[in-house]
């Protein structure tokens, strides 16, 4: 793709990004408006006096028309104002900045486990299509997808954490091995501090929740890798590669998996968002601070702005992940490049 076409593509893609973000914000705004009852009361909290509620109503501009409210809401968002939590009494954005690294760490490791197990299993099943191996992997994938995350988390915590004592059962680090907070990522911070004990401690706290979170998602990865590999392996270019004398390994990776990058990366993009949803349950069970446990608490306390703010933040994260996925596909798949070139020059 030539530089000018690439620039045009990026321009179009960024415009799409802005539209999507605006769409997310609007959906979230409509969500707030759909809340039955007095929004000012909700924002001020159940214990607020009528006078306090009135102050909040004025501050949030709830006495104005819905269009003005919408514009004011957009304006507040542009200033990073997601509202104030009625539970922590802190700005929601500040709370999230504190907590999001824990969740990203969890989702990140879960994604690594997810891919390092799921992709090879999918490749294996596709290579042994219509054999017992294929069938077993397929059934295992379906089974993984049928396990309720929260229940699996509880069982794993009890059996592996409590009974075997293999890993810590809750939290992100053992009391006393904390390291100074710089990035907010416990693993990164402990490495920055040069403290390997703290690092392995953080990893030990992370590995079981991440594995539990990864299992249902592996189900999808196995299926998509298997499915797109099977399609790719039926193509003539696979026969041609074998006729050249290529090893089966080369055939599988260069002519099978290489062609499956586009659908698999699309799936990974979607899974980042879904995993943040799954993290809600895993963090609750393992008492890890983070996005999920904050959300559960917010739900329990009917902390409207905290919940809404988080829906928004997840939407933003997912939107940017989508952009990253598109760029990966653009780099990896000439068919995507061709399509985008045609669109960009149209």
């Amino acid at each position: 793709m030539s530089p000018s076409l690439l620039a045009r593509y990026l321009g179009r893609r960024l415009a799409l990004l802005v539209t999507t973000l605006w769409g997310v914000v609007t959906i979230v705004f409509l969500l707030i408006k759909a809340i039955p009852g007095d929004e000012a009361q909700a924002a001020a909290g159940v214990t607020a006096t009528p006078a306090q509620v009135e102050v909040v109503r004025q501050r949030l501009g709830l006495d104005e028309s819905i269009v003005q409210q919408y514009l004011a809401y957009l304006g507040r968002l542009l200033h990073g104002d997601l509202g104030t939590s009625i539970f922590t009494f802190q700005p929601v954005l500040g709370d999230l900045q504190q907590l999001i690294p824990y969740t990203i760490e969890l989702v990140g490791l879960a994604m690594v486990i997810n891919l390092t197990c799921g992709v090879p299993l999918g490749v294996w099943a596709a290579a042994r299509h219509r054999t017992r191996v294929d069938n077993s992997v397929r059934l295992a994938a379906i089974f993984c997808g049928a396990l309720p995350t929260f229940w699996l988390a509880m069982i794993a915590q009890t059996l592996i954490g409590r009974k075997l004592g293999a890993v810590p059962i809750s939290g992100v680090s053992t009391l006393g091995v904390e390291v100074p907070r710089r990035t907010g990522f416990v693993t990164v911070d402990s490495l920055l501090a040069g403290d390997l004990t703290a690092f392995s401690d953080a990893l030990a706290h992370l590995v079981l929740p991440a594995a539990v979170l990864a299992i249902p998602f592996m189900s999808f990865v196995i299926r998509v890798v298997r499915g797109s590999m099977i399609t790719a392996l039926e193509a003539d270019h696979v026969t041609a590669a074998r006729a050249k004398g290529a090893r089966e390994r080369t055939v599988l990776l260069q002519h099978g998996l290489r062609n499956a990058i586009a659908p698999v990366s699309t799936l990974i993009g979607l899974q980042v968002g879904w995993m943040m949803g799954g993290a809600v349950m895993v963090e609750t069970v393992f008492s890890r601070p983070g996005f999920g446990s904050y959300l559960t608490q917010a739900v329990a306390h009917k902390d409207t702005f905290a919940v809404i703010g988080m829906v928004l933040v997840v939407g933003v994260i997912v939107t940017f992940v989508g952009l990253a996925v598109d760029l990966v596909q653009l780099a990896a798949d000439p068919r995507v490049r061709l399509l985008e070139t045609r669109r960009a020059s149209a």
Partner: peptide, 17 residues
């Protein structure tokens, strides 16, 4: 756009609303 919001998170939002 709606699909880009995880079901679990979206559903929590609606449920609390």
């Amino acid at each position: 756009i709606t699909l880009s919001l995880p079901v679990m998170v979206m559903a929590l939002g609606v449920a609390v609303a």
